[in-house]
Write a protein that binds this DNA or RNA. Structure first.
Lengths: 197, 197
DNA sequence: AACTTTTTTCGACTCTCAGTCGATTTTTTT
DNA sequence: AAAAAAATCGACTGAGAGTCGAAAAAAGTT
């Protein structure tokens, strides 16, 4: 009654690696079971569908990232840095994502979409906390925090998602979030160092 | 030497309708050829792949919308209205898109993505023209127009794409574009009437 | 008209892949 | 040891995209 749990973890591990290295669409269930050395039926004993596997793989990924974000939230960095830090916690994990996701977007649309949605669900409330803290401290000065935060995250997702963003994109992005939050001009300028790479 | 052209248009027409009503993924090539009353081989005589058909269907859609946008651009409405009008030209064509695209996003991801990309390509330069005109007239006051415009379009896409945006989303969106363009506060307030429906 | 060439059409076939299912083996419970 | 539950197996199905060589239709040539 626990051998099953181990097998499931093993399958998630394999799926995770293959989805990242070859892309979701390019990884067939047959690929996964070949790698695991099991039969089709066994796979479907643990997952109702390939898509559900994806779902669980993503949740697993985001769990780690949520932890990181919460650590930053609990820290005592200045608000501006917290804000950016929490958002950045969810940036793809080094070489992991970047390998394939960036490249052949076509083959990863579903994965990408699911990540974006799940990420949004988790990230918005965390960033809202930071932003509200910022308002209390007088660093930001606006209402409708959740909506503003949502839009900031949308922008950060879409703009920095591809690899072809420019210096100017960064500059404008920073200016935009400063103005959206009614923060002191220049207070977010430090972000430029972090994003550029 | 022109019967072929007619057939191709016919196929695009059929594909267009079916993609919109049933979704791209849910429309098989077999569905299309059944509707057209032709054989598989004939279809592939005109299109190298189902995806290429999608590509051409979308281009066709966007052609119409580009015309509308250009008409507005050439008009002499006030800048603020032009800006919004041009962007709104690319909103899905009444009942057309809304039918299915909004609903089962899952089945339409590729279509959605392609529309977004192609739309961006066409819309950004048009909106830039308006914005630059606005700067010349002193209505807006900022540099890096293309980047700002891109972000505005991203926001309008993502925020108003789903049907569950709120009054507050609209308010914040308006505030954001005013501030991104350094426009007079309230100068864009009229948008609220248009978006609400 | 008789032919040749080009364009268009046909549909059976292949290949890939997700998912099913009943049978069998392994593990746990009693 | 027997019964029950959990885990595994792999052949099979069904759907759907794309291929290909052959045939029919249309256009061009003499």
């Amino acid at each position: 009654m626990k051998k099953g749990e181990r097998r499931k973890q093993e399958l998630l591990e394999i799926a995770y690696k293959m989805f990242l290295s070859k892309g979701y669409e390019n990884t067939s269930v047959d690929d996964i079971i070949a790698e695991a050395g099991i039969a089709k039926g066994t796979y479907y004993y643990y997952f109702p569908s390939k898509e559900q596997t994806l779902e669980e793989v993503i949740d697993l990924m985001l769990d780690k990232e949520t932890e990181r974000a919460k650590a930053i939230l609990a820290s005592d960095y200045p608000i501006e840095q917290k804000l950016v830090g929490v958002i950045a916690s969810f940036r793809p994990d080094e070489a992991e994502m970047t390998i394939k996701d960036a490249l052949h977007e076509q083959e990863n649309l579903l994965m990408h979409e699911k990540i974006k949605n799940k990420l949004m669900e988790r990230l918005v409330p965390l960033v809202c906390e930071v932003a509200e803290q910022g308002v209390r401290e007088g660093k930001f000065c606006c209402d409708n925090i959740p909506e503003r935060v949502k839009m900031i995250i949308i922008l950060s997702n879409e703009v920095f998602d591809s690899d072809n963003y420019t210096e100017t994109d960064i500059k404008v992005f920073i200016d935009t979030i400063e103005r959206m939050l009614y923060a002191k001009p220049g207070s977010m300028a430090f972000v430029a160092q972090l994003v550029r790479k």
